[in-house]
């Protein structure tokens, strides 16, 4: 029972976090993080993913359960959130890098930090930064 509740919560957080990341990427013009060609589509799909994840989680089973009756205790819920949201960030960065692989091919040095994702993909920006660090060392 707890295992199934944990899996459901993991799915809720993973899908909702993927949705939130698409909404942020479209709002802040981080094209290297988009999973869809148009920012407006990415925003809409992201919003639908968040709503659908919560609707599914709360409509599929009774969720007001104590941790002794199959619910999650606070620590477990926090761990599940951390794991699922980290996986969502990792998946978004990797999948968007594959989808947008032509972005930032011009070889220009990417901006520092997350702003690089406005011009290139995460994997390309990371490889550029690592090469820079290697040359300097």
């Amino acid at each position: 029972m707890v295992a199934s509740f944990s899996v459901d919560y993991f799915i809720l957080v993973y899908v909702a976090a993927m949705g939130v990341l698409q909404m942020i990427a479209s709002r802040r013009d981080l094209r290297g993080m988009l999973l869809f060609p148009a920012p407006s589509i990415a925003f809409l799909v992201g919003l639908c993913a968040v709503i659908a994840a919560f609707a599914w989680f709360f409509a599929s089973e009774p969720r007001n359960l104590s941790d002794t009756e199959g619910g999650l205790d606070g620590n477990r819920a926090a761990s599940m959130f951390s794991a699922a949201s980290s996986l969502a960030v990792f998946s978004t960065l990797v999948i968007s890098s594959l989808i947008n692989r032509s972005l930032g091919r011009d070889g220009q040095a990417p901006s520092p930090g997350l702003d690089a994702l406005g011009q290139t993909t995460y994997l390309r920006a990371l490889s550029g930064s690592l090469k820079g660090l290697w040359k300097r060392s």
């Binding site: 919560y9 809720l12 957080v13 909702a16 976090a17 939130v20 968040v50 919560f54 989680f57 709360f58 969720r63 007001n64 619910g71 999650l72 606070g74 819920a77 959130f81 949201s85």
Partner: peptide
Amino acid sequence: SDYLVPTLMSL
């Protein structure tokens, strides 16, 4: 619920 507000706030 233990899951709606905490999850929204964490997101």
